[in-house]
């Protein structure tokens, strides 16, 4: 079984890897590029812990093959901060204790960033539905939703 050579861009860096066509983008990010921020919580697209954006579109990296990433622009949790300056969502999540164990946090941050890019003024309901594919078992979502909405408000005021 021959492997495929993939050239792609992750968080602005050009990267290459060889992958079996059965390997998912998540497998490739974690095992070949050592970007372990995206997590595998289910492998079936039901938990969102592996969320990344591909060409600006939010997806589950467990539901995309590594070979499909060729030529794409991929953004992961590792690319959210601007150097040593945290993204406002990251800062707000820490301040609000919007994480307990933190395993869902990378996926939720990627998904929430995608929401705010598309909708700078989401209602609570819109926020909850946008994040419905990101399971969190610790928080009951309360502090997560508050953190996202408060970040949105601050970003609106700042712009």
């Amino acid at each position: 079984m021959s492997k495929f050579h993939v050239s792609t861009t992750v968080n602005g860096d050009s990267v290459e890897y060889l992958c079996d066509p059965r390997e998912t983008l998540l497998d490739c990010l974690r095992d070949k590029l050592n970007l372990t921020g995206a997590k595998e919580g289910c492998g079936t697209g039901d938990c969102g812990a592996c969320s990344v954006s591909v060409d600006g579109r939010l997806v589950c990296s467990c539901l995309m093959l590594g070979v499909e990433a060729d030529g794409k622009q991929i953004e992961t949790v590792e690319g959210i901060a601007d150097g040593d300056v945290l993204h406002p969502l990251q800062q707000k999540f820490i301040e609000h204790a919007a994480l307990q164990c933190g395993i869902c946090t990378p996926g939720i941050l990627v998904a929430a960033k995608s929401l705010l890019e598309k909708n700078p003024n989401p209602t609570e309901e819109e926020t909850r539905y946008w994040l419905a594919g990101n399971l969190c078992r610790c928080t009951g979502y309360d502090k997560i939703i508050r953190a996202v909405m408060e970040t949105a408000e601050e970003l609106r005021e700042a712009s």
Binding site: G45, G48, S51, V54, L58, C60, L115, G133
Partner: peptide
């Protein structure tokens, strides 16, 4: 069908 993430695909 599915989540926001699934909708992307």
């Amino acid at each position: 069908i599915g989540s926001t993430q699934v909708q992307g695909r």
